[in-house]
Design a protein around this nucleic acid. Structure first.
Length: 311
RNA sequence: CGCGGAGUAGAGCAGUCUGGCAGCUCGUCGGGCUCAUAACCCGGAGGUCGUGUGGUUCGAAUCCCACCUCCGCAA
């Protein structure tokens, strides 16, 4: 089929790559405008744009595809459009361009976790299972008919980043499979049960602030879900302290300590913080202005001690 | 010129304000103790203090200047 691909970040790269290596023809790749990134404010191409350019594909970037993209895309006469973490709201005009419409690769088991950050939120919520849903895009947010689903467990210690990587590969496989079935007319779209729908907003930095009155398990899940971005954080002496990895310590109990208090900070037992319920052992962290390091290395420098209160 | 932190032994840091023998913890190597050990005791090695054939000074990790690199925030 003749395809227009809409996608931007790493998550979409395996899918685009799979399409490139398939029998299908990619007419154009649409992605978000280039952004200036980092301290130096250098312009960096998105991962999808990099891959597209490397393969000599036509790249289109719109500030607002709804306003700027309709005519140009229509003239390409695609059979189908595929979106995968593109990052812009689409309109009916866009949906109507291709005979097969737009199909979307989404990182959750719809109708749960509709919206912008399903993968991270699944980890934050401590879900045991998630997956990829490929759906027919309609005018709502991830509310269209389901074309294909593939489940996968969320592992005990898995971070959002690791899950992202796995799901993006699963998504790519399911996409190719689904395209073939669409072509052969073997797909029966299934309506979503809207009464079961949940929505997730874009993750913001402040969402990653640790609330030490929560349980250790909840915070452990937050740490996993916010890794690699924006990374769960707390404060120590008004400085930002990011926590990259942690474990729940169920060995001992400190009822007389405050939430967020350092109950242990030695090389033998590690860095342990009291939570609303249970204890969190910090494994990997980064202090503002400093490099990322293990809790062991951090303790060597003695920048924290028992009795300090975080948060 | 967006704001700020940092560069000292393999690692993490102190020392810089107030210039005067290069320190701490861990690791590492050797020895000891032990049924045994990642535990404990003793000893050793390991540094052109980011770069400068820069400036000041009797003397610079420390003060001044220029540059490089890393990191947090903001965008």
């Amino acid at each position: 089929m003749k395809i227009v691909f809409l996608g931007t970040p790493d998550f979409a790269v395996p899918s685009l790559n799979a399409l490139i290596n398939s029998k299908h023809e990619i007419l154009a790749v649409v992605c978000q405008p280039d952004k200036k990134v980092g301290r130096a404010q250098q312009v960096v191409f998105s991962p999808v744009k990099e891959l597209a350019l490397k393969n000599g594909l036509k790249v289109l970037q719109y500030n607002k595809i709804r306003l700027e993209g309709v005519e140009e895309l229509k003239n390409l006469t695609p059979d189908i459009m595929i979106s995968c973490a593109y990052g812009q709201i689409l309109s009916q005009d866009i949906i109507d361009i291709a005979p097969y419409g737009i199909i979307n690769v989404h990182g959750s088991l719809l109708p749960k976790y509709r919206g912008a950050s399903p993968v991270q939120q699944s980890v934050i919520d401590g879900e045991k299972e998630t997956g990829i849903t490929i759906m027919q895009t309609d005018i709502g947010i991830d509310s269209g008919d389901i074309l294909a689903v593939k489940k996968t467990p969320i592992y005990e210690n898995e971070t959002a980043g690791q899950l992202f990587d796995r799901l993006s590969v699963i998504g790519a496989e399911l996409l190719i499979d689904t395209l073939d079935k669409i072509e052969k007319g073997m797909i029966t779209p299934i309506k979503q049960d809207d009464s079961l729908a949940t929505h997730v907003k874009m993750i913001k930095k402040e969402d990653a602030l640790i609330d030490w009155s929560k349980s250790a398990t909840t915070i452990f899940n937050l740490v996993r879900g916010m890794n690699p971005w924006p990374v769960a954080f707390t404060k120590i002496a008004d400085k930002m302290l990011k926590i990259y990895t942690s474990t729940v310590d169920s060995n001992s109990v400190y009822l007389d300590k405050k939430d967020g208090e350092v109950v242990c900070a030695d090389l033998k037992n590690g860095l342990i913080i009291k939570c609303g319920e249970g204890l969190l052992k910090v494994e990997e962290l980064q202090l503002e202005g400093s490099k990322r390091m293990s809790a062991h290395d951090f303790l060597l420098g003695r920048k924290i001690s028992v009795g300090d209160i975080l948060g």
